[in-house]
Amino acid sequence: MRVTLATHGGLAAPVRAGLSPDVVDTDALPESATAELCRLVDAAVLAASAAAEDREAHRSAPDAMSYSVTVEEGGHSSVLVQSDRDMSPEFAALLRWLKEHAVRE
């Protein structure tokens, strides 16, 4: 499984646009870390799925950043998007874990 974190917008949006995304490949992780990552992804997806579409909320917080987490596994990929304005605690936990473990491409 490969998980990529891309960060968009924010006060320094043009600077950020030039930076590489953060990437975690579970092939390079111990089994326990992979299990922890899967748990965090599942929790973030579950929290996101429970909420309703509210695109305007992203716009109503100037300088808030948006984050897209892409999970690729077995030819299938899904993308989870949240922002500073309204991220769930579960997504925040995933974000932190990815920042701590990722290597920049």
Partner: peptide, 10 residues
Amino acid sequence: MTSELRHQCI
């Protein structure tokens, strides 16, 4: 196949 999960999304 790619699907997108916006916070508060699909």
